[in-house]
Design a protein around this nucleic acid. Structure first.
Length: 314
RNA sequence: CGCGGGGUAGAGCAGCCAGGCAGCUCGCCAGGCUCAUAACCUGGAGGUCGUCGGUUCAAAUCCGACCCCCGCAA
């Protein structure tokens, strides 16, 4: 049996972990996850998704605050692991840890490396309107997603692709690829291939301000971001209503054939429809959510907030 | 004890601060008008005002407890 320590934290990592657990060729001897942190509305301490699954399978869980620690290193060494498998762990892994497993540290990166090194590669692929992205299985080295590639699978992006659907595809194709790659690399069937650094691109970490709609952008870009920025940071805008900033989340929109031809960010309503102009046309908002309220259709919103007509959003 | 908004007719909201007939827009039902409509007119049904308790002559409104929904933050 191939001995594996699994490094991962969010929901995205879970299918990879469960597949390893379920495969008789592997023994997952430990799981390393980020420390539990206060979360949610009352700052409750919630276990990470990966930790929960590990506990369900009676797998020992480590949650070190740092991997640069002698006792942590000693614990990892004692696992006598063949692989460390890293899927969205959330922290840089220092060289001393990379050197621990016999066969190496294998990372799952959801892009076609060397394109989109760095965080949020799937968000980026959707936001850029790419026709395809993929999943890369690679060996970690000291750089940011710079290690040699073991295997890769390509994923076609649909015109209505969202993070939900893309993650499902990444799991569908990436999980079996990981399993297969781990087995074949262990037997020497796979030779790592260095990345072409000249073709590399980097993504930046999304932050909450990325979700704030810039209405001076074209419709197409705004629409892509709506699909790319789910579930976080989402897409939102601000309505100055009677001197009070009201934040409004946009859940669904579409380009409109109606042309209001107003300055970007200006709201116009017509026949129970909600339109906002951007740089190259008029967008119809279909579903939205004022802060403190549940999400609702534009039609419902207009019944209670008819004064939005003519407002300038930003 | 992280900060904050909300629960009022099927939907979205106002009324609450300052207690005194339960409102608005839409939908629904019936009828009318029109060549015509996501139009217009007339009439109508639909509510334990989240729950429980307290104060009061009187509570959607004030006080207390609880339940539920949501935004932020992390």
């Amino acid at each position: 049996m191939i001995r594996i320590a699994f490094f991962g934290t969010p929901e995205f990592s879970v299918p990879f972990l469960t597949a390893l657990v379920d495969d008789p060729a592997f023994e997952v001897v430990a799981v390393v996850s980020q420390p539990d942190r206060p979360q949610g509305r009352n700052h409750e301490i919630v276990p990470t998704p990966v930790k929960s699954v590990a506990l369900d399978h009676q797998i020992p869980v480590l949650q070190p605050t740092t991997l640069r620690d002698e006792s942590v290193l000693a614990t990892l060494l004692a696992l006598n692991a063949d692989y460390f498998v890293v899927v969205a762990y959330g922290k840089i892994i220092p060289q001393a840890v990379l050197d621990v497993p016999r066969l190496g540290c294998v990372n799952v990166h959801p892009s076609l490396l060397p394109k989109y090194r760095g965080p949020s590669p799937m968000n980026w692929a959707i936001a850029e309107g790419d026709a395809k992205t993929g999943v890369t299985i690679m060996l970690l080295d000291a750089g940011m997603d710079t290690g040699p590639i073991l295997s890769q699978t390509s994923i076609g992006l649909d015109s209505d692709e969202t993070m939900d659907t893309l993650m499902a595809k990444a799991h569908e194709q990436g999980v079996p690829l990981l399993i297969d790659t781990l087995k074949r690399f262990a037997t020497g069937e796979i030779v790592p291939v260095a990345q072409n650094d000249e073709a590399a691109t980097m993504t930046k970490l999304l932050d909450r301000e990325d979700g704030r709609i810039d209405w001076t952008l074209p419709m197409e870009v705004i629409e892509r971001r709506l699909r790319a920025y789910q579930p976080w940071p989402g897409l939102w805008t601000v309505w100055m209503r009677n001197g009070v900033e009201t934040r409004i989340k946009i859940h669904s929109l579409q380009p409109s054939d109606f042309r209001a031809d107003l300055p970007p960010g200006t709201v116009s309503t017509k026949n129970s429809r909600l339109h906002v102009d951007c740089s190259d046309g008029t967008i119809e908002i279909l579903e939205l959510q004022p802060e403190g309220k549940p999400r609702m259709s534009a039609e419902a919103f207009l019944l209670g907030y008819s004064d939005v007509n003519g407002a300038m959003l930003g």
